[in-house]
Design a protein around this nucleic acid. Structure first.
Lengths: 135, 135
DNA sequence: TTTTTTAGGATTATTTTTCTCCTATTTTCT
DNA sequence: AGAAAATAGGAGAAAAATAATCCTAAAAAA
């Protein structure tokens, strides 16, 4: 029931970019500032890019920058970018994982809880997190 | 962000006991009915007992039975019995896991979300799940 | 005293997570 | 043009967590 360390890193990386003066940052800086292993940070940024949360620019003066305003990027966005669609139980996202889904009395609860959790995670944006830090 | 298979099994085991005529069940039956590997089911029942959700009786005519009414046992109870205290990020439950907790702007959010999620999970009891099944 | 059933320690197997390494490719600056 | 600074992505290694299994012991009932 926990986010993975990778997801935690991803949030911190996004936060670093969002809070940076220029609005963009290079993997080396992100990695160092947020204590995320450098090559792992690079992989994470690639995932975030594929999910459309950031864009990259190669070469000198390159780096990553957000594609939307910090107020438009939620924790849910980042979590799903890294972990895939949110669900509390595998059966919600992969019907084949359980052959009893159709008769399972818990299944609909997992679906319902997914929506409740998603709503909660949607409510927190990068902007909120930055504001908490520097009020 | 998902419960483990062990936790899913645990919920199904509890549900089986709660729904049984006699109010008690033997590991072999639980295992078979819920398609949980037998020895694993035994381990799970032991965890549930240590958490105080069930009690056991050894020997012929033995088995496991609930210590509280189905309406008094929530999904949160079962999840925490198996996985330990609920938290969305390791840092909420183990301060040593992250050396930046004190200055981390996300940390308080994880604490807050934990409470929201816990409340949601508390709302669903074994009784609710049984009723869904046999209305 | 035999059978049924749980208790618990030790151990193995599998899967997932958490990275690392290497070789492109792109872009800028001199 | 060429060197330097970045990201891109495939492949895979290491570590940790999950998902079991096995064995021996203990308790209770018949």
């Amino acid at each position: 029931m926990q986010i993975t360390r990778e997801t935690d890193y991803a949030i911190r990386c996004m936060l670093y970019i969002a809070a940076s003066e220029s609005g963009s940052a290079v993997v080396g800086d992100i990695s160092e500032a947020q204590s995320v292993p450098r090559t792992f940070a690079a992989k994470i940024m690639q995932k975030l890019q594929r999910a459309g949360l950031v864009k990259s620019k190669r070469g000198v003066k390159g780096g990553y920058f957000l594609t939307r305003e910090p107020s438009e990027i939620s924790l849910l966005d980042i979590i799903e970018a890294i972990e895939g669609p949110l669900s509390l139980n595998i059966c919600v996202v992969d019907k084949n994982s359980c052959d009893r889904v159709s008769q399972c009395s818990v299944h609909p609860i997992w679906v319902e809880l997914r929506d409740i959790f998603a709503e909660s995670l949607k409510r927190y944006t990068l902007k909120d997190l930055i504001n908490l830090n520097t009020p």
